[in-house]
Simulated assay, not measured.
Amino acid sequence: MPDNKKRPPSLSTAAAEQGRDQRRVTMKDVAKRAGVSQPTVSFVLNDRRDVSVADETRARVLQAAKDLNFHPNRAARALRSNKSYTVAVIANRIVSQPYAGQIVLGVQQAVQPAGYVCFVVETSETPDAVDAAVHNLIAQGVAGLIYAAPGPEPIHAAVTEADVRTIFVNCWADNAKDAPQILADEYQGGRDAAAATFAAGHRRVVYLGGPADDYACKERERGLTDAARDAGIDPASVRREHGDYHVHSGYDLALRALSEDRPTALICGNDRMAVGALMATHAAGLDCPGDVSIVGFDDQPDIADQLHPPLTTVALPHLQMGLTAGELLLADAEPQGTRLIPCTYVPRGSLAAPKDRS
């Protein structure tokens, strides 16, 4: 008796059907669906504004490409146009830094909609490693180079005769003085942090900064000085202590400050020093912010908002710095000069009005 039940397809038949389903959609498929020629599809998808295509036709092609989930073959496109669609980020110690890694994310978000891919190369701190990485990237073809560092600092840039647009983010190179730079506005961030502290009523303030010769420390301290003047406070009355941006440094400096002419507020060079200052406050039997207010800088993920109390701080604009770098890299005009990206003051529970100690 014949078996009338529907049999499942054989493995070979299933594989063939799956292969047809997964066949790469081509411009010819898009052209057929849109009812236009293949060159017209190419003109539209490659945004050829030098070729006249009616708006209605352009819309029909874009809708057909969307319906078919068409993805251009970037490698073939690059070969045809002799144009690279790869942006290289030369990263110096930022991959392991969660907040500085936002720079890479920003670059990627800026260039991806234009069809570019972001390629990150983490280098060691030796000039030879940087030179080798950059020359290899240029040999393979890149649309541009973005140097990035976890903190504003001088770096080594590879010397090359290739005409490749280069941008520096959170860093600069002495051998590339004319290259465009993107930095956080450390001065503005330091001024905002200090202004909020003075506005809360604090007059007995100690600044616990990073190394005295560090760019960020100097800019933030300059902002503090101007904020003090704006508040009618003699900047010289604000004690300054310098450490190394680590927790132990904040702890040692804060403990010393609290054992002398005790301040009502500590403005710290970064969030890690603020963590140390909070530990020192507790070790001294004091309460934050009841006895001593503490202000940080960086808004470091998984630290600043997780402390008890949550840390008042200033957020560095790493994501926006990366976005700006990506936009400038793809811009028609050649970028020039230094661009300062504003920081954001983040009020939380560690800053309050001082107790009346009269």
Rank of each mutant, 00 (worst) to 15 (best):
His135Phe: 02
Gln112His: 13
Glu153Trp: 00
Tyr187Asn: 14
Pro154Lys: 05
Gln102Pro: 00
Gln109Lys: 13
Tyr147Met: 08
Ile155Trp: 03
Val120Gln: 04
His156Phe: 15
Gln102Cys: 01
Ala184Val: 01
Tyr147Gly: 11
Val95Glu: 12
Ala110Pro: 06
Arg165Asn: 07
Ala158Lys: 05
Ala195Phe: 07
Asp131Gln: 11
Val159Asp: 12
Phe168Lys: 10
Pro152Thr: 15
Ala148Cys: 04
Pro113Ser: 09
Val89His: 11
Asn136Glu: 05
Ala100Leu: 05
Cys171Leu: 13
Tyr99Asn: 14
Val95Phe: 04
Glu122Ala: 06
Ala148Gly: 03
Val134Tyr: 07
Glu153Asp: 02
Trp172Ala: 15
Gln140Gly: 11
Ala196Ile: 09
Arg165Ile: 11
Gln140Ser: 10
Ala195Gly: 10
Pro154Ala: 15
Ala194Arg: 00
Val95Gln: 08
Gly189Phe: 08
Thr123Gly: 09
Glu161Phe: 00
Ala184His: 00
Thr123Pro: 10
Ser124Val: 01
Val134Lys: 05
Cys118His: 10
Ala193Val: 12
Val107Ser: 07
Gly189Glu: 13
Glu122Pro: 08
Arg165Met: 09
Val104Pro: 01
Val134Ala: 05
Ile90Gly: 03
Asp174Val: 09
Cys118Ser: 13
Ala196Thr: 07
Gln188Ser: 08
Asn136Met: 05
Ile182Lys: 04
Asn136Thr: 05
Glu125Leu: 15
Leu137Phe: 07
Ala110Asp: 12
Ala100Ser: 14
Glu153Phe: 03
Asp131His: 06
